[in-house]
Amino acid sequence: MAIRDRGMVKWQAAFQLPELAKTQKDFWLDTKRERKPIIDEHEAEEFDLRIIYAMEYNHSIKLMIWADGFTKEMTGRIQFVDPVTHELRIEVKDGEFERVAFDSVVGVKVVE
């Protein structure tokens, strides 16, 4: 006599509450969030000097950007620093630009 397994049918009852699955996913995402690092004046000035250096010598730059509890890396060339809107315009790929607010930058590294 062969064993008849119901396959995925036996697990369908567990997935009938999509709200529960979404709530659990959001909970685990919230546990991985971090507080925004505090940037003092010395670090901010160091970031500015690195950005100026990268712009002057046309080097790529690696930015650590904090957004909504998570940090991500962005690499590209700085095309423009807008003092009015407090944003950097970065060319990520040829012809593709992204804007980054000064306040969200938590790390700057020049890639030569």
Score class of each variant (00 low, 15 high):
A67V: 12
L49I: 12
E73Y: 03
K36P: 03
P18Y: 06
R35K: 09
K62I: 01
M64F: 11
A44C: 07
Q16W: 04
A54G: 00
L49E: 15
A67I: 11
E45A: 15
T31F: 05
Y53S: 07
E46W: 09
K72A: 13
Y53R: 07
E46N: 05
L17E: 15
A54D: 00
K36L: 01
E73N: 03
W28Y: 14
E56R: 13
D48N: 12
A54R: 02
H59P: 03
K22H: 14
A67Y: 10
M64V: 13
M55Q: 00
A13N: 12
E43Q: 12
H42Y: 15
I38P: 03
A13G: 13
K25A: 12
A14E: 12
T71I: 08
Y57R: 06
R33Y: 00
D48C: 12
A44K: 06
I65W: 00
I39N: 02
L63R: 05
D26H: 10
L17W: 07
A21Y: 10
L29M: 06
A13L: 11
H59E: 04
Q24E: 13
D26N: 13
R50Q: 11
T31M: 09
M64K: 14
I65Y: 01
E73D: 01
R35F: 07
A67T: 14
E41L: 11
A13T: 12
Y57A: 08
A44T: 01
L29C: 02
R50I: 08
K72H: 12
A67G: 10
R35N: 07
F15A: 10
M55V: 02
F27N: 07
I65L: 01
I52T: 03
R50D: 10
K25W: 09
D26W: 09
P37H: 02
K22M: 14
A44Y: 05
D26M: 11
I39G: 00
L29S: 03
T23F: 09
R33V: 04
A54V: 04
M64A: 14
L49Y: 09
W66G: 05
P18M: 04
L29I: 06
D30L: 08
R50C: 09
E43L: 12
P18G: 01
Y57N: 06
L17S: 15
E73L: 05
G69C: 00
E34M: 12
D30E: 07
I38C: 03
P37D: 03
E56A: 13
I61S: 06
K22P: 08
T31Y: 04
L29N: 02
I65K: 03
K62G: 07
E19I: 09
Q24K: 12
T31G: 07
F47K: 02
A21V: 14
I52W: 00
